[in-house]
Design a binder for these strands. Structure first.
Lengths: 154, 154
DNA sequence: AAATCACGCACTATTTAAAGTTACATGAAA
DNA sequence: TTTCATGTAACTTTAAATAGTGCGTGATTT
């Protein structure tokens, strides 16, 4: 399959929304992300259900952040998009009748579970506020005011 | 993409080779793994280059383990099959000009790298001997002698 | 020497899940 | 009532892994 970039994508979209300060349409976000508006709606749909963003139809509508950035962690976002699998590897067969495979699966699963736990713990330590702060630091390092629009793609 | 099961597969094949004690052909191994002989040759090719297994052509040929099981870790096997990517997720764009994306990528990469390091460290702690011992323990728990062929699939 | 066995490799097909796209319904604002 | 924007379902495309085909090469057996 393709490499899953939904988490990366949704975080990116959220930060662009934050920087904008006012509602952004799927089309605007899609342009910034160089993708399709429907992809944006799909990916933000989960966040809306989780209460992290709000969407409004019609004129002047679009997407806005619905909560304080400091209260949303990368782990929250990960859960909101449906907890996609983290590990690229899996077992050849689940529920194997073969004892050899059971032994192999057990060893691999133990390692994978530990790595996943660590990953999710790290995700839980980073909030959208953290990411926004990092972005602003990068802006400053580039000697541009955070109010300019130079961070928008294209 | 499909879920990568090469590591799981090759470990499985190796343990079956160990249990057999004499050379096994790609066809025999493929039958046990319910896959195609060419897949077996492909996956074992990397291990041969790394010196972990030996292959012989012609009558009585096939695959054998070339080293003491205790000297081969899951990490070694992982390296031998070409260090396939461990994380199912990636960044939407590598080398992003967008500072927002840079901030997001940096945060994700840090977490991914830590998780990968942990995973590889765990892989390095498990040898083929460990796995074989676990298999024999499972055999005993099932009250079968390890010399029977009941662990072979089908 | 000939037949057979088994790996080696290049090439093609299939599969799986994400990403992209199209089409249309719904609902809000001008 | 027209226009804008989301909501959703269905379909197409794409990336990466596995599966499969065909033929060449070398070793063993007879």
């Amino acid at each position: 399959m393709k490499r899953d970039s939904r988490l990366s994508g949704v975080l990116h979209v959220l930060l662009h929304m934050v920087e904008q300060g006012k509602p952004m349409t799927s089309e605007q976000l899609a342009k910034a992300m160089q993708t399709h508006p429907v992809v944006i709606r799909r990916i933000l749909g989960g966040l809306r259900d989780a209460g992290f963003v709000h969407s409004e139809k019609g004129h002047g509508g679009g997407w806005t952040i619905a909560r304080d950035l400091a209260t949303i962690t990368m782990h929250d976002v990960y859960k909101a998009i449906g907890r996609p699998s983290l590990m690229a590897m899996g077992n050849r067969t689940e529920a194997p009748g073969c004892l050899v495979e059971q032994a192999v699966n057990a060893a691999l699963d133990t390692s994978f579970k530990e790595a996943e736990a660590l990953l999710l713990a790290r995700f839980g330590e980073v909030t959208l506020a953290t990411l926004a702060a990092d972005f602003h630091a990068r802006m400053a390092a580039r000697s541009l005011s955070p109010t300019t629009q130079e961070h928008i793609h294209g």
